[in-house]
Each structure stands twice: as C-alpha cells, then as structure tokens.
Design a protein around this nucleic acid. Structure first.
Lengths: 232, 232
DNA sequence: ACCTCTATATATAAATA
DNA sequence: TTATTTATATATAGAGG
C-alpha cells in the first residue's frame, strides 16, 4: 500500500523498517479495535518491536481477561504441562493440588460463561440458570445503587452551586440580573423521569463499548456525561 | 473501506456482522503476519468471535512464546507476586503464577455469582452483566435443544406404542374393544400449541446475538412431567 | 459459510518538512 | 523522531452466486 509494492520479507533498511513498523503498528491496533467494536469480538493483540518494546491492544483494555480465556480454550488440548515426576517432595503435591483446583474452577467458570454446556444434564442446566439469574439480579441492584449514589452526589453539588449563585445574585441584584440556567438544571435533576431512565438503562442491554474507543456514542442509553461520572 | 462508510459501533444486523467479521478477521491476521515479517516484530493476535470461536496468529506459530514474553514483560511492571528469593528456580515462578491465576479466577467467579460486587466499577459491572446475560442465553438455548430432542424421542416412542396397540386392536377386534387412552396421549403430542410453548420457554433456537436482556422469569414454563422426564 | 465482483474507503510507501 | 502530503496499493461493504 503506497507508492511502491512491498515484498513480504524483512525490510533491510533500518530506518524504513522503523518507520514502516510505526505506521503499520498503529494501523494494526486500529483495526484490532475496529473488529472488536464492529463485530462484537474479543481481541487481544501483542506486538514486540525488534528492540523489544511492547505494544498491545485488548478489548475492554483487559488483556488479562483475553489471555485467561485463551488459556482456558486451549487448556484441554495442551495437557497442561505433564508433571515432572523427577522433582519430588511436597512441592509437587502442592502444585498438583493447585492445578486440580484450578481446573475445577475453570470448568465451572466455563459453565457460568455459557460455554461447554453439552456435558451438563438438564438439572444442572437448571441450577446454573438459577444461579446466573440470581447473580444478574444482584449486579443490577448494585448498578442501581451506584447510580443513585451518583445522582445524590450530583444533586448535592448542584445545590451548592445553587447557593453560590443565589449569593452572587444577591450581590448583583442591583443590576437586575437573572440567572435562569441554574434553575433549569435543578429541574432536570429533580425530575423523577431521570431516575427511571437509569433504571431501564441498567436492565436493558448491558452493552458497554470498549474502553479504547472513546469516539463512539454509547449504546447504553445513558448520556456520555453520566457514564463518565460513573465509570470512575 | 468499501462502498459505504461504517460507523465505529457494533453492527446490529447479525448477518452483516458475521460477514464483516470474517473479512476483517482475515485482513487482520494478514496484517499481523505482514508487520511481523516486514518489521521483524514478534506478534501475538487472539480473536474470539461473538460465538466464542477462537482465531489466532503468532509469529513463528508459537503463541506460547509470545505470551510468556508478554507475562515476563508485564510482570516486571506489575510487581505481581513478589518472587520468593529463598527458593529460586522456575518452579517457584510457575507456582506463583498458578496461585495468581487461581486467585484471579476465584475473584472472577465470585463476581459471576453476584458476590463481592462492591469492588467493581460501573463499567466492570456492565461487563459482568453483559457476560452473564449472554451466558444465560446460551444456557436457555441449550435447554431448549435438550427439550426438543426429548420430545422427538417421546414422539417416536408413542408412535411405536401406537403401532403395537393397533395390532392388538386388530387381534381384539372381534371383541369390539377400543383403547381410548392412547388416542388422547397422541393428540396431546401432536398439538401444535405444545411445540410453541417450548419455543417461547427458552431463547428461540440457537440465536444468542441479541444483546438486549429481558430479565425474563427464570421459570421455563415447562410442565412438571416434562421436567421429570428431562432431569435424568 | 465462502467466493466473486466492483466501487469506494483506507492504509501506507516515499518524499518532504 | 514525528507530521504532512501525495500517489498507489489494499481492504472491504454491498450485492449476487
């Protein structure tokens, strides 16, 4: 892409290689983000430059999560490190126990993530479903709580501001100035509809855009300023 | 790129999303390979589709090496698990890694069970909610599938029984005996309304894409006799 | 799901600042 | 190094098999 074709082989000129690396790296990260957002895919991208510098992209900025999932995915195939029988002692035992627990946890987690369901009976499916349903309720409740707390904080701030402005108005009274904007804001925050909006936003689609893509509009139904306030 | 511009947001049409995913995925893998070769970089790329299928690229086809390097790199910064200096060697490191992963998994699992939510930010809550919602859809879909299979089996059995009874009726014809109970049962299973009930009970067939979460009641709408049959 | 065929949108090599 | 410009090479959206 560009003025000249490029052979698919190492660029020998060091300067060109560095420049190309810089350009293509940003292009690659961009595309990784795009496919993640556009296609609802989970992506992890790791790039080490020749000199060993690290660049990375991960859906939701959480490489940990991607790698965990990757390891879980290829766990079954890889036979997880055939334990070395030569190294003796309780260390090996400890280690084996740990691995066993890890495996159990991972299997469970798979189920909680809706994967690997074929091995479950109908009854087990029922159990998991109930568990997840209950968890979802807790989570939505917690979200609601957070949102209400945020609203309280905001309201307090607005009232303080209201007070300040009132004082200022007093001072400016002789000039017959009227500050109407603060009144509008207060009304918005007092409106019961606002609270309802948050409630439905929480229940509705749990979609959250990738942390890396700040440009796009949110699909949560929440206004940007609210998300920004809440995300902290 | 292409005939129309594309907003950087999730493609809602699921067909288009899938097609775009396929195209962009190959493009992304290609570019990952190109930068790796051209610029002598070490690259690891992991992509999970919405449905959980894994695609990957790694320099020299060795994701293991890339991930190890990555962990080493970010270990230094993150000070994860201060290595015990008394017992040296890779064993300790391996062990520490295992423990760290176990801890992470346990923490995650708690979250997936709706516990220990206070430590989560709003964004993280959103993510967990989305994940659980998606998992629930998979589980309900799987349940549905099981139910349909069971129904097929039952129908087959009933038809066999029907045949047997028909023969018996032939033999008993001279006595003018009529077996009415089998007729009733056959009617129940043939009723189209029954099938519809199962369809609406779970997620409709394999579709898991729709992100919107209906906090539908956990109850499946299945009659007890069906459950009893399926639970085995 | 995957391929083909365009018209366009993007990415980027090379030159330049 | 990093940014801007420009000419081309690629990638890919949309439509149809």
């Amino acid at each position: 892409m560009g003025r000249g074709r490029v052979q698919l082989k190492r660029i020998e000129n060091k300067i060109n290689r560095q420049v190309t690396f810089s350009k293509r790296r940003s292009g690659l990260l961009k595309k990784a983000n795009e496919i993640s957002v556009l296609c609802d895919a989970e992506v992890g991208l790791i790039v080490f430059s020749t000199k060993g510098k690290l660049f990375e992209y991960a859906t939701d900025s959480c490489m940990e999560r991607v790698l965990e999932r990757y390891e879980r995915y290829s766990y079954a195939e890889r036979q997880l490190v055939p334990t070395d029988p030569t190294s003796p002692g309780s260390w090996t035992l400890e280690h084996a126990k740990l691995k066993a627990r890890l495996e159990v946890l991972q299997r469970n987690q798979k189920h909680y993530m809706g994967e690997d369901l074929d091995s479950l009976s109908m009854k087990e499916l029922h159990n998991v479903e109930h568990q997840l349903d209950s968890a979802l309720k807790h989570i939505r409740s917690r979200k609601n709580q957070l949102m209400h707390e945020s609203i309280s904080v905001l309201q307090k701030k607005v009232k303080e501001r209201e007070k300040e402005l009132a004082q200022q108005n007093q001072w400016d009274q002789q000039n017959h100035e009227i500050n109407s904007s603060s009144f509008v804001l207060q009304q918005q925050l007092d409106s019961p509809h606002l609270g309802e909006a948050y409630q439905s936003a929480g229940v509705d689609n749990g979609e959250v855009e990738g942390a890396n893509s700040q440009q796009q509009p949110t699909s949560t139904g929440m206004p940007q300023w609210m998300l920004r306030h809440l995300n902290g």
